[in-house]
Design a protein around this nucleic acid. Structure first.
Lengths: 207, 207
DNA sequence: TGATTTTTATAACGACCCATACAAATATAT
DNA sequence: ATATATTTGTATGGGTCGTTATAAAAATCA
């Protein structure tokens, strides 16, 4: 999508792009994040990015492809944040809290009212009638489950968890906690309340 | 909204309504449930109900009011199902499973692909920019939390739960399990998988 | 019957939707 | 300079959006 020529040395032929696709995608994501996919018109995206509709189409294809790319980017960013939180050698409960706090930082980013999770807030609605979005959501959900489960398995190996605990079950509960926080953040809950919810959930999950 | 005259005995004056507002609301709900609020046009609702746009406006006001009424009705129905499941004198784990199975019956109702929860699947998206929908969602979420918490408190009084367990915390986890099921159902998970998830979560929650 | 009341469907309004045709603008290549 | 390549903004299709004006239809009341 981004045409690079820095490696060839020879400069590109035509008129140079006035916009950066990367920052345009970020702005588009912000717009979708608020009003959802169906609730966001291409004119809104054009206004948010400063680009004209033809430029948007030249770079991203169409509205659907643009949203799919925003969704893929969000999953990358979101999964990376979770993995980084779980990767270190903190105690289990601290690692989980790092993951939730990282998520909350995303959910409460941006100006104004909290937007919650991009996936829960915009993709889940479309999933019922859009196979491509459904596939992205299903894959992403499984990935988070797997990351949590791997962390619980590691904790069990290190003796941080009772031997009879089931890492897969705890992973579902950890994901469920993430999902409830995502919903509540968009519905208006305060960050402090959601932090407290996460702390209490972690206590139960860690036994 | 529904004008009743059966009690007066005297028949109504003008042309009799050709449509039942109650069934029209159900059909409208089905339509919103699939494509969401922004993704559903009034023409779609008109087609689903068989009513013409002016008739819809005469009965429900406008698209927004129609959706709000559908949302309110869904909360009523959904909360009643949860309360009925939790009200009986079943053991705690069985009561919780009854609640989850009742929810799954709703999420997997209708033809074709599972629609999940109406609130999670359609309202959560709009919540960011629609104060009326946000209020309904926030109130409903609190109501479910409260119902779960009351049941846990009752269980603790009956000695079904350890004395040091916190009913409010367990209620959040029970709600979280409901939310994750709602999301996963719409994203394509099978009912059997979601039943299994609920069973495992209940085991952890009940200690 | 004719007046009144209420619901109905047709048709249309302006605004907005996604997408594109077009030509001007701006770069390199010859 | 001229040709070629690429991106740009304007302007605009053709369609759909939410909503409403209008009048015919179908009932009761006088």
């Amino acid at each position: 999508m981004a045409r690079k020529n820095s490696e060839t040395g020879s400069a590109r032929r035509g008129r140079p792009p006035a916009y950066d696709a990367e920052t345009a995608l970020k702005r588009a994501t912000e717009t979708f994040w608020r009003a959802g996919y169906s609730g966001t018109s291409l004119d809104k995206v054009a206004a948010a990015t400063g680009m004209s509709p033809p430029s948007l189409y030249a770079v991203f294809g169409n509205k659907h492809a643009l949203y799919l790319e925003a969704l893929a980017r969000y999953w990358e960013m979101s999964l990376a944040a979770t993995r980084e939180a779980l990767a270190g050698d903190h105690p289990l409960d601290q690692a989980l809290m790092l993951a939730y706090e990282a998520a909350l930082s995303i959910y409460f980013s941006g100006k104004g009212h909290a937007r919650g999770c991009f996936v829960v807030g915009t993709a889940v609605t479309e999933v019922a009638e859009d196979a491509a979005i459904r596939k992205s959501v299903a894959t992403g959900l499984r990935a988070i489950d797997a990351d949590f489960e791997a962390r619980f398995r590691r904790a069990q190996d290190k003796g941080e968890l009772k031997p009879d605990a089931d890492p897969a079950t705890l992973a579902i509960l950890a994901s469920a906690t993430m999902h409830t926080i995502a919903i509540r953040a968009r519905a208006g809950a305060s960050r402090a309340d959601l932090s407290a919810i996460a702390r209490k959930a972690v206590k139960v999950i860690c036994g």
